[in-house]
């Protein structure tokens, strides 16, 4: 169960079960099948509904808007998530506006898949996690793929509702095995939030909130600390990043008294700072330390492996933060 294949299967299921679904993006048809091979095989079976485009992200987004307004279900692949900036006008001034500004007379359920994230040496413009710029956009859902969430569930959900979606796929997830039932950790689900810990919540001394690729790194650290040092923390992996389902976070952090957030995006004005603001309001006086926000350095992402490793959030930064928070 490799994530890229599961995702491809989810897209295939979408095309098979819903005639309104149209896949649109650059280089997504066979034999190439997309820069990350997620759509391989689909254009052969659905030639009119899997459409390769020129290098025109603005039009990919705009065409998606029109398709969605006309009752179709576009799923756009933005080859590298970095290029989502070229769709920003469509997402902010068009797609997320229509339903609200037309007072519900139209809906625009476009879905954007954004292969994001670094650690592959692609450098400053092909490695970013730009979702922070979309958090808080009214009437937009930002959803993160992870190894703990079946992409089929995600796409079934997207196709059953009318809010536009930015679906963030960290590139390093593609070759990894799904971890829907990870060994060694107790796994429970509350809505779309997955809870992982080695011991019951009462015995945990911190809550770790992480999504996407970082969630997998954090899970490994949570397990290692539990086994090797009997440091017990609870990991929460949400799929919905914005709007957030705050309840699981609030309940967990209230119980553990300590909260760490982890994201690969750059520090400042970020997901973690919003989590921190909300939890400070809800749990004022109930946490034994300030919320700890782990994010990447506020600079460009270097191509050099060594420099990239220092700049981006990875296991070392996450482990340091968890150890501190669990005290």
């Amino acid at each position: 169960m490799i994530f890229a294949k599961e995702l491809g299967a989810a897209l295939r299921e979408s095309l098979e079960t819903d005639e309104r679904v149209v896949l649109i993006g650059e280089d997504i048809i066979d034999p190439y099948g997309g820069a990350f091979k997620v759509t391989r095989g689909l254009s052969t079976d659905f030639p009119s509904r899997v459409r390769t485009t020129p290098i025109s992200e603005g039009a990919i987004a705009g065409f998606s808007a029109g398709l969605a307004l006309a009752g179709m279900r576009p799923i756009a692949e933005v080859m590298f998530g970095d290029f989502i900036t070229l769709c920003f006008d469509q997402i902010v001034n068009h797609i997320t506006k229509y339903e609200a500004m037309y007072n519900g007379k139209a809906t625009c359920p476009a879905v954007f898949r954004v292969p994001s994230g670094g650690h592959r040496g692609y450098g400053p413009t092909h490695s970013q996690s730009l979702e922070k710029h979309f958090f808080g956009v009214p009437h937009l859902r930002v959803v993160a793929a992870s190894l703990f969430h079946d992409p089929r569930d995600a796409f079934r959900d997207f196709l059953s509702q009318n809010t536009p979606v930015l679906y963030v796929e960290h590139k390093l997830l593609y070759p990894q095995h799904m971890r829907l039932a990870p060994n060694g950790l107790i796994t429970t689900r509350e809505g779309s939030t997955v809870r992982l810990s080695a011991v019951p919540r009462e015995d945990c001394t911190a809550t770790v909130l992480a999504y996407g690729y970082q969630a997998g790194l954090a899970a490994d650290i949570v397990e290692k600390l539990a086994v090797e040092e009997e440091i017990f923390v609870e990991l929460l992996v949400p799929a919905e990043l914005s709007p957030m389902d705050w309840a699981p976070v609030e309940v967990s952090a209230k119980a553990t008294g300590s909260l760490v957030t982890v994201e690969e995006g750059t520090a400042g004005w970020s997901w973690g700072t919003e989590v921190s603001a909300v939890m400070s309001e809800r749990l004022f006086g109930l946490l034994r330390r300030p919320v700890s926000v782990v994010a990447s350095e506020k600079t460009v992402i270097p191509s050099s492996r060594a420099k990239e490793g220092r700049m981006l959030v990875g296991s070392p930064q996450i482990e340091t933060a968890i150890r501190e928070a669990a005290k």
Partner: peptide, 29 residues
């Protein structure tokens, strides 16, 4: 920013072109 059966408008320039084309694509499909 008006919407009625078979009619939409938006005040941001340019973006309505691909949107109208997307509607045309939907009609074709």
């Amino acid at each position: 920013h008006i919407c009625a059966e078979g009619f939409m408008s938006n005040g941001v320039q340019g973006g309505i072109l691909p949107t109208a084309a997307g509607i045309a694509l939907a009609k074709k499909l």
